[in-house]
């Protein structure tokens, strides 16, 4: 196959960036999309030009590193697929393919197709955990968990944190990512003690990072490589609503703890 690539090139965060066109010749249908880019990059290096910067690591769809928008579709728009799992057999000979990075204010571009997604880490740091120190955990079977809840929790926990939901959303909203973590922990008994605190803090950090708002478009769900459901957003909205209505139920006093 012979293809034409229209690729976003940007030297660093300050560079305004532009599209450049490269030929991708002699591509095999069995190659993955990233292997096709490897071929193009090899040729660029041989010609003494700088290769296209692009993130990838595990190349089996689980680490969440790869992050390309292909013809306007994050991860190429195939159901439940990351870019690294996308194969060239889905493209036609002679096709022109446009490749862009995730675009969002909260994901500044570092170079070419590579963006900075640490905003997602900051959201987890704000509360996406269960506060248990190592050691002293009760027996794993001490708390039974209904299989339905455990399975639903796993559906949410399957999120790989790639940020495709943000990339696909017309508003660059991170609601699907945040709701997946909130739901994963909120559905398990272990997550209950911090359920309200968690959702309040995570949403606050999400807002501060400059993501947009959810307008229930459903694009996030459609591109999510792990098919995380939009219903988790509803679940988070419910949790947040209760938490904000309840406020701080304790009387504010100056009295401190025991000495």
């Amino acid at each position: 196959m012979n293809l034409t690539l229209k690729v976003w090139r940007q030297k660093d965060a300050k560079d305004p960036g532009r599209f450049e066109t490269y030929p991708a010749a002699n591509i095999l249908p069995d190659m993955s999309f990233l292997e096709m880019l490897d071929v193009v990059n090899e040729r660029l290096i041989e010609e003494g030009r700088e290769p296209i910067a692009c993130d990838s690591d595990c190349r089996e769809g689980i680490c969440g590193t790869c992050s390309l928008v292909i013809d306007g579709r994050p991860h190429g728009g195939h159901h439940g697929t990351t870019v690294c799992q996308l194969h060239m057999r889905h493209f036609q000979d002679g096709q022109t393919i446009t490749i862009e990075p995730w675009r969002a204010r909260a994901f500044p571009i570092l170079r070419d197709l590579v963006c900075d997604r640490t905003a997602l880490d900051r959201i987890i740091q704000a509360g996406g955990f269960v506060s248990v120190n190592t050691g002293g955990a009760p027996d794993g079977n001490a708390l039974p968990v209904s299989k339905t809840d455990a399975d639903l929790s796993m559906d949410a926990a399957a999120c790989i944190g790639c940020g495709a939901c943000v990339a696909a959303c017309k508003n660059a909203s991170a609601m699907l990512f945040v709701s997946a973590k909130v739901s994963h922990l909120g559905l398990l008994p272990q997550g209950q003690p911090e359920r309200e605190r968690r959702v309040l803090n995570m949403v606050k950090t999400m807002d501060e990072a400059g993501f947009g708002n959810c307008t229930v478009l459903g694009s996030c769900e459609a591109v999510c490589p792990k098919e995380v459901s939009l219903s988790f957003i509803a679940r988070m909205n419910r949790d947040y609503g209760w938490a904000i209505l309840r406020g701080n139920p304790r009387r504010q006093t100056g009295a401190g703890g025991a000495g």
Partner: peptide, 15 residues
């Protein structure tokens, strides 16, 4: 202990 620790952290093991 690892299993106990991970369950406490909210790892959704199969049930």
């Amino acid at each position: 202990n690892i299993i106990d620790q991970c369950v406490a952290q909210g790892v959704p093991f199969a049930r």
